[in-house]
Design a protein around this nucleic acid. Structure first.
Lengths: 346, 346
DNA sequence: ATGAAAGCGCTAACAG
DNA sequence: CTGTTAGCGCTTTCAT
C-alpha cells in the first residue's frame, strides 16, 4: 500500500492479466469480460493507480491541454475571461495553462515555445505582442508547422479563426453617448494596439455627428492599458493645460486610474468631467461614481472561444482540415450609470 | 521546410549524426565537438525542431510543472497571487497550471488527480475544501503516495510545508483599530473556514481590551467569502435590526459588498458605520471611501511559496527527504485610510 | 476476450 | 567525442 507510483505493469501483475488488458479497461468501453474488468478495477483502486499522461500523450498524439496567452491576470477582464475559459474547457475534458506575458514579447515567444514542446492541442491568443505585419513571423509559423490550431481574440488576426468583440460599435456607442450629452472636447485614453478599433469607433461617433476630434486629446499607451497608465495620462493632461469635458477610456482599469487622478486634482465627476470606461468589470458598478461603461459579454465570448477551438481541434483530427477560418463577432452594450451625469439620454 | 513535427531522429539523419549526439547538444554543455555541435544546431534551427517534453518527462521523471489549487481567479487577491507565483516559477524554469475549483470539492479532487496524472513536480494548495480532520484523507494520501511535494497557504495544514500570514495578528490589529476608535458593537463577516484565525484575532482584540464580543454579530460564510456574501450578509443584518457601529470583513471583496449594501440602505461610511477590510487589493485605495484594511504581503508570500516548494522538490531529488516541514510566517500590516473615519489613532 | 510485441520520442548507460 | 542499445509507461496492431 505504501508503494510509489504504481505502473500499468504492477496492476497487470497483481491482477494476473496482461498490460494490454489493463489498458483496455482503462480506455475501452467493452471488449473485456466483465469478470476480468472487475478484477482489474479492484486492483487499480487498491494500488491507487493513476495512469501516466505523458506516456499516453506520446502515443495518442494529443494532450487534452490548451495554452492561452494573455497580458496579465491582475486586470479583472483577463482573470474573469480565464475563469470562464477554464470552466468551459474543463467540461470538455481539457486543461488550460495560462501564460501571462507581462508586456514582454520575449516572454510571449518563450511561452508559445513551451506550449509547443508540451504539445498542447490548441492555443488561444488573448492578446499578442508579436508583430502582425511581418508575414513570415517566426513564432506563428512555428505553431503552424506543428499543426496546432489557434483561435484569437485579437482583431488583428482576422485571417485565422477568431472571436472578436465589435469594438468599433462599442466605442462608437460610448462616444455617441458623450456627444449626445453635449460634450465636444472629449479626450481618448487608448491602448497599445496601433490600428485600434476602439479609437476607430470613437472617431466614428464624431463623424456621424459631423464633429471634429481634437487630435491633441488622443493619447495612446505604448505598453499596456493599465490603471497606472490611465492615472498618469490624466495627470499629464490636466497639468499640461489640456481642455476637455469628458474622457473615453480604453478599459475600466484606465478609467479607474483617470478617476483617481481627477479626484486628486479636485475635479468632480461627472459635474466637471464625464467618464466612460470599457469592459464593465465587477468593480465598475461599485465605484463611486458608478462607471458608465461598455460591457463586453465575457461569458459568451469565453464560451465561443472554447467551442471554436475545440471544434477546430476535433475537425483536424478527423482529417477535415483546411476549412476556411471562422470569425465570430459579438456586439457590445453601453451600460449607463453615474459617471457621465444625466441618465436621460440612455 | 513544410514538414510537421520533426523528431530527434530527423535532425540526426539530416545532420549526419546519431540521435544520441543530438540529445547531447540539447542537454549537455560540453561533451560534443564544437564543429559537430554547430552542424547539429544548424539543423535544429533549420527544421524548427522542438523537443517533445512528454518523451523527456517520462525518462527524467520530472515535468518542470507545478499545479496550484485556488478558489477562484475573479477575486483579485488570488489573481494577483497567481501572477506573482507564475513569475517566480517562470524564472526558475517551471510552468504553473492553475485549478480554480469554484467552491467544489469534487472539482478540487479532479484537479489534483489530473495534476498527479500529469506528474507535476509539486502542488500548492492556496485554499482547500478537502476535510482536514479526516486523517486517512484519500486525496492527500494519493499525492503523498506519489511523492509529490506540497506547500500550503492554508494554516489548517501546519503539519506540512506551509507559508502563512499571521492572520491572528492581522485581524487583531484591525479590530484593535476599531476598538480604539471607540467602537464596541462590531460585526464580523467571516469566511468559510471553521476555526478561522481571523476570527481568533478579532476575538483576541476584544480580550486584550477586556471587552465582550456580541455573538449575534458574528457571521460566517459556508461557501466562499465573496462580494456577494458581504453584500447579502450586510443587508440581512440591517434588515434584521442588528445594531452595530462597525464591520470587520474577512477580505476586501466582502468589504466591497458590505459597502454597497450600506450605500443602498442609505448608511454613511464612516460617519454611521466604520469598515475594515482584509488583503489590501488594488481597488482598496481607489474606493470612495478608501478602505482601511489589513495588507497581505502578496509578493513576499508568493516568492516564499515558490522558493519553499522548489527547495523541497530539489531536496527530494537529492535524496535528502524527510526534512521536518517548514513553516514560514508573514506579519500583516494595518493600512489606515478613510473607511473608519478619524485617522488620528494610526 | 486476451496476450505478445512493436513502437511513441527521447535520455542514459555502455562501449569504443 | 560519438554511436548502439535499452528502456520510460503506455496504446495498438496482430495473433490466438
Amino acid at each position: 500500500m505504501k508503494l510509489i507510483k504504481p505502473t500499468i505493469k504492477e496492476v497487470a501483475q497483481e491482477a494476473g492479466v496482461s498490460i494490454a488488458t489493463v489498458s483496455r479497461v482503462l480506455n475501452e468501453k467493452d471488449r473485456v469480460k466483465s469478470s476480468t474488468r472487475q478484477k482489474v478495477e479492484e486492483m487499480i483502486h487498491k494500488l491507487n493507480f493513476q495512469p501516466d499522461q505523458n506516456a499516453r500523450n506520446m502515443i495518442k498524439k494529443e494532450t487534452k491541454t490548451i495554452g492561452i496567452i494573455i497580458p496579465e491576470l491582475s486586470n479583472e477582464y483577463w482573470s474573469q475571461l480565464v475563469d470562464v475559459l477554464q470552466d468551459n474547457f474543463w467540461k470538455m475534458g481539457y486543461m488550460l495553462i495560462v501564460g501571462s506575458i507581462d508586456r514582454s514579447l520575449e516572454k510571449e515567444q518563450a511561452f508559445v515555445k513551451s506550449f509547443i514542446e508540451r504539445r498542447v492541442d490548441g492555443i488561444i491568443f488573448g492578446s499578442s505582442l508579436t508583430p502582425r505585419s511581418n508575414t513570415d513571423n517566426h513564432i506563428f509559423n512555428l505553431v503552424k508547422q506543428y499543426g496546432i490550431p489557434i483561435v484569437s481574440l485579437d482583431p488583428a488576426f482576422r485571417e485565422m479563426n477568431c472571436v472578436l468583440g465589435d469594438h468599433v460599435q462599442g466605442a462608437s456607442d460610448g462616444a455617441e453617448h458623450l456627444i449626445r450629452l453635449g460634450h465636444r472636447k472629449i479626450a481618448f485614453i487608448g491602448g497599445p494596439t496601433a490600428p485600434d478599433s476602439r479609437e476607430l469607433g470613437f472617431r466614428n461617433a464624431f463623424m456621424l455627428n459631423r464633429l471634429i476630434v481634437d487630435e491633441s486629446l488622443i493619447r495612446r499607451s505604448d505598453s499596456s492599458a493599465t490603471f497606472q497608465f490611465g492615472y498618469q495620462t490624466t495627470i499629464d493632461m490636466i497639468s499640461g493645460g489640456s481642455i476637455f469635458t469628458a474622457i473615453f477610456c480604453y478599459n475600466d482599469a484606465t478609467a479607474f486610474g483617470a478617476l483617481k487622478a481627477l479626484a486628486e486634482k479636485g475635479v468632480r465627476v461627472p459635474e466637471d468631467i464625464a467618464i466612460v470606461g470599457y469592459d464593465d468589470v465587477q468593480m465598475a458598478s461599485l465605484f463611486k461614481p458608478a462607471l458608465t461603461t461598455v460591457r463586453q459579454p465575457i461569458h459568451e465570448v469565453g464560451e465561443a472561444l472554447a467551442k471554436l477551438l475545440i471544434d477546430t481541434i476535433e475537425a483536424g483530427s478527423n482529417g477535415v482540415r483546411e476549412v476556411p477560418p471562422k470569425n465570430i463577432s459579438f456586439k457590445m452594450q453601453l451600460i449607463v450609470r453615474e459617471s457621465c451625469g444625466s441618465q436621460l439620454e440612455n
